[in-house]
Structures are given as structure tokens and as C-alpha cells.
């Protein structure tokens, strides 16, 4: 019996009797991070990082949550479980599972570049590494965060000159907070969509320092948006909600913007390839740094990435999971 097996409910550790990011309700769920494809409600007990707690409460509601710090060991029926920074969003963690000297690490979602908010990704030596592969193709190589922030700032300034509202589109949890950091340096007001406001308030209450923003309500005067920055989730894109901005420019912030076709398809005025996932080189470095003898590849370009790893001498196989689609991609605007 492998230490972690792939079941129809999710990644399961039989010895410790717990699941990692299960997609169905279970007795004990270890949660890597608060995005909806990884954290689902209905389980009896949850184990997560301290910083994930307010976000999980916001998204899943009240449950039995057990909190840990990074590197803190929890023992579940002789299995040593600990969380380690994944650098994906606030609170995001990799899960290290050890039993009788054998170590498995489940990456969850991760990025290798430090974003100043989410903790710094740590490569954890292990025997078996289960990694995501969202951007597992060599065409995905990100510019440094600073350079992208710079592009965003320039774009905002040029919109300001044209008296246009800059509408930046990004996930409300993760991307939106990074965007705030990016636009903070350009003087002017920042308005946010309700979904982002909720996350923002939750994080402020939890003690995170974020730039001041104003919530957009039906009463916000339209005049206020002229020349300002608006941050909204993907569901707002192209919806009636956008009508309140008279003259605006839309900038979509996502790793998928690396390819022109995606940008054109979404009718964006600008696309910024700002991602919370590791790029191709990031994935390769992470896999190599774990020194794992066996690598399992989940959501993303799993066949391509595993074939490539096998060719460079790393034993890899693909695994089908239900990760990879954040709700915000499909849910309608509100």
C-alpha cells in the first residue's frame, strides 16, 4: 500500500486516515489552500495553516478547524504530517507526510517566486513528490514580478492620462491582493468589487497589511471611477456590472495571458502574465530540488510534463484529479 493513494474522493493516506484536499466530504481533510477546487466544505475535521483559517471560514463557513504553523509536526496514527510554504496565496502550504522514514510531499498549488505576501516556497526533500502542472509547458516563463508590476503601473498611468478607468481582472483571493500591491505605487483611488472586498476585509481583520480600498456599491457615484483603478474578479468581465464605468480599459492578469490568442479571445485591452503558479522553469527546479525518486503530476499539462521528466531521468507518472478550476472562472457575475 503506498503511503498516499489516489481515490475517487481525493488523495488518501490510509495509515493516517486522512485526505489531502478531498473533493468529497471525509472525516479528516488536510487543506493546502483556500481556493475552491482545493478546499471544499462538508468534512468533519480540517487541518490547515493558521493563515488559511480566516479564508476558509469565509469561504466554507464554520467547521472544526485545527491550525498549525509551517514546520509544526502533527502525528496522526504514527504518520508525521507538517505544512510548508507553497508561495501560491496567503496561507498556501505543501503537505509533508512521513511514515517509517518514507516521505511524500503534496505540493498543492505553488509558485517559486516570492510575491511578498504568500510566504516563500520551500523545496522539501522527499521520496515521492506530487506536483501540480498548471503551466507545465516551456512557453510559460514569467517575467519577474517587479517587471510585470512595472508594466501594470505604466498601463494605469496611461489610462489615467486618457481619463479612463483601469479595470484589472484577477482572482479575488491571491491575485487581487498582489494587484493592490502593484497599483499602490500609483497615486489615486482604488475601488474593488464586492467579492474582493470580502477577502480584503477578512485579511485586514486577520492582521495583514494591505492598501486602503473602497468597495463599489450601487451608490458609488460614476464620476468617482474616472482615472481610478478598479479590481474585479473574472466573473465581472464583460458583465452588466461593468457598465458603471463609462470609459475604461480592461487588463486581465493571469498566466494564460502569456499567449496572445487568450488575450484576444477575452477581448482584453491588455493582458498581464501575472500568475500564482510556477512557470516551466519553476516546476522543473521544484521537482529537482526535492530529490524525489518518484514524481506524480496532477492538474495541468500532466502528460507533457511527466513525459519530459521521464526523458531527463526522473521517474514520473500522471494522475487525474479534480483540481484546476477555480469557481470564479465559471460563476456568473453578482
Amino acid at each position: 500500500m503506498p503511503l498516499i493513494s489516489f481515490t475517487d474522493k481525493g488523495l488518501y493516506c490510509e495509515q493516517g486516515n486522512f485526505y489531502i484536499d478531498p473533493w468529497q466530504p471525509v472525516d479528516k481533510a488536510v487543506i493546502t489552500h483556500a481556493h475552491s477546487d482545493h478546499a471544499r466544505g462538508g468534512s468533519r475535521a480540517y487541518l490547515c495553516h493558521r493563515d488559511s483559517l480566516p479564508l476558509l471560514k469565509l469561504r466554507l463557513g464554520p467547521y472544526n478547524y485545527q491550525l498549525v504553523e509551517w514546520n509544526e509536526k502533527v502525528i496522526l496514527n504514527e504518520v508525521i504530517v507538517s505544512l510548508h510554504p507553497a508561495g501560491h496565496i496567503i496561507g498556501s502550504s505543501q503537505v509533508r507526510v512521513e511514515y517509517k522514514g518514507e516521505v511524500w510531499v503534496v505540493s498543492g498549488d505553488y509558485k517559486t517566486e516570492a510575491d511578498g505576501l504568500s510566504g516563500i516556497f520551500e523545496a522539501i526533500p522527499c521520496n515521492t513528490f506530487i506536483t501540480e502542472s498548471t503551466f507545465g509547458l516551456p512557453i510559460y516563463n514569467w517575467k519577474p514580478q517587479q517587471a510585470i508590476y512595472h508594466d501594470i503601473q505604466n498601463w494605469v498611468r496611461s489610462n489615467e492620462l486618457a481619463n479612463k478607468t483601469s479595470v484589472l481582472i484577477g482572482y479575488s483571493l491571491g491575485k487581487a491582493q498582489r494587484l493592490l500591491k502593484a497599483v499602490e505605487e500609483v497615486p489615486g483611488n482604488i475601488y474593488v468589487h464586492g467579492a474582493i472586498w470580502n477577502v480584503h476585509e477578512t485579511l485586514l481583520q486577520a492582521g495583514f497589511k494591505l492598501p486602503a480600498v473602497q468597495r463599489i456599491t450601487p451608490d458609488t457615484p460614476k464620476e468617482a471611477f474616472k482615472g481610478s483603478v478598479v479590481i474585479a474578479p473574472p466573473s465581472a468581465e464583460g458583465s452588466l456590472w461593468m457598465r458603471r464605468f463609462a470609459s475604461y480599459s480592461v487588463g486581465i492578469c493571469s498566466g494564460w495571458m502569456q499567449v496572445r490568442g487568450n488575450q484576444r479571445r477575452r477581448n482584453a485591452d491588455a493582458g498581464f502574465a501575472l500568475s500564482d503558479h510556477a512557470d516551466w522553469n519553476g516546476l522543473l527546479q521544484a521537482v529537482k530540488a526535492t530529490g524525489a525518486e518518484k514524481v506524480y503530476i496532477t492538474h495541468g499539462f500532466q502528460s507533457v510534463f511527466s513525459r519530459y521528466l521521464n526523458e531527463i531521468g526522473i521517474d514520473a507518472s500522471e494522475v487525474k484529479t479534480e483540481y484546476g478550476t477555480e469557481d470564479e472562472e465559471t460563476q456568473s457575475a453578482n
Binding site: 509547458l137 516551456p138 512557453i139 516563463n141 502569456q258 499567449v259 496572445r260 490568442g261 513525459r307 519530459y308
Partner: peptide
């Protein structure tokens, strides 16, 4: 990069010129 991986990139990008533009480091 091996040729098959180049091809995979090409099928995803859908454009040879852009694939090459993206694969060569800045």
C-alpha cells in the same frame, strides 16, 4: 528542447511564430 515538446507547445499556442517567440528567452 526535444522536438515532440516543441510540437506540444505549438499545438497549445496555435501559432508557430508565437511559439518560437515565447520559447526563446528574453
Amino acid at each position: 528542447l526535444p522536438m515532440w515538446l516543441f510540437q506540444e507547445c505549438y499545438h497549445t499556442v496555435g501559432d508557430l511564430s508565437e511559439t518560437i517567440a515565447l520559447l526563446i528567452p528574453e
